[in-house]
């Protein structure tokens, strides 16, 4: 039996005694495409940071391939797990190609400069993410959608087994959202990269993710295939609004919030 890539066992975590996550059990297998959904403040970002080792989980609560994640050297972990932030501006004017090349860091030892091989990997990562055209421009001068793709390119250059992405689509228009998700789908299908991403758009989440994990107030309330997780009862409870669901003929579930003053009477079918 092979072990899971990442396992959270009864994970509880908080800042300054304020609990953010409570009793989380989560198994991530290699090759999965997981969407982390839930209201603002439900703990999605914190969970991603814990899974990527950016925040220290309590002992014995997260395992990376059978090893307590706390015992895995940071560099070793970075060779397997990449994380990308939601939005970012840099304090200094790094070029996009330099940002992407930073993804090679965990593969380089002290005193070494990037080799031809590293440049080639970064180049390939930029091809995959369609970021080559602005490789020589400055990160702070490109649009939000382009920035997000550069950050993903940097994560791709890291050659990880898993990518954890914090709301990569939230600030983007529909075209860029599709573009990002299609890049991730391609990485998942062609390179078998495990993907876990936090997102708000439930419709797109159901279209792209094979599994959804619904968080509410620091707890996992549903975990399964999109059509099992996106059910009106639970969504109404979690988001505290009235909701109607439609099957999208092109795949996925359309989540339609109802206007509160009409919700009791409206039946437009």
């Amino acid at each position: 039996m092979t072990s899971s890539l990442l396992t959270a066992k009864n994970l509880t975590f908080g800042y300054d005694d304020v609990p953010i996550l409570k009793n989380i059990f989560l198994k991530i297998e290699a090759g999965e495409f997981i969407g982390l959904i839930g209201p603002n403040g439900s703990g999605k970002s914190t969970l991603l940071k814990l899974l990527a080792g950016i925040l220290d989980a309590p002992a014995h609560s997260i395992y990376f391939k059978q090893n307590d994640i706390r015992q895995v050297p940071r560099k070793r972990l970075a060779q397997s797990i990449a994380w990308t932030p939601q939005e970012q501006n840099l304090a200094f004017s790094f070029k996009n190609s330099e940002v992407v090349l930073m993804g090679r860091h965990p593969h380089l030892s002290l005193f070494t400069m990037e080799s031809e091989k590293d440049f080639a990997i970064a180049q390939k990562a930029m091809e995959t993410t369609h970021t080559l055209p602005f490789a020589d421009r400055y990160f702070n001068e490109i649009s939000g959608g382009e920035k997000q793709r550069v950050l993903i390119a940097s994560a791709v250059a890291q050659e990880p087994e898993m990518m954890a992405l914090d709301e990569p689509t939230s600030a983007l228009d529909i075209k860029y959202q599709m573009q990002i998700l299609e890049i991730l789908k391609h990485l998942n299908e062609d390179k078998n990269t495990t993907i876990i991403l936090a997102m708000h758009d439930l419709h797109l989440a159901s279209k792209f993710c094979k599994r959804l994990v619904l968080l509410d107030n620091g707890k996992i309330v549903r975990d399964g295939p999109p059509d099992k997780v996106l059910e009106p009862g639970i969504l109404e409870e979690v988001y505290n609004i009235d909701i109607k669901l439609y099957r999208d003929p092109n795949g996925g579930v359309l989540v339609s919030p109802l206007l509160s003053d009409l919700s009791s009477t409206a039946e437009f079918e």
Binding site: K49, A52, G53, I54, R74, K75, R76, L77, A78, Q79, I81, A82, W83, T84, P85, Q88, L90, A91, F92, F94, V99, M102, G103, H105, P106, L108, L110, F111, L151, S154, Q158
Partner: peptide, 23 residues
């Protein structure tokens, strides 16, 4: 000079530096 590359990543952002393996 030995830690210059690590410092680069920190100057670009602490969380990303952590996820790229910088202590």
């Amino acid at each position: 000079m030995v830690i210059a590359r690590d410092l680069n990543l920190i100057s670009a952002g602490v969380s990303t530096a952590l996820s790229r393996g910088v202590n």
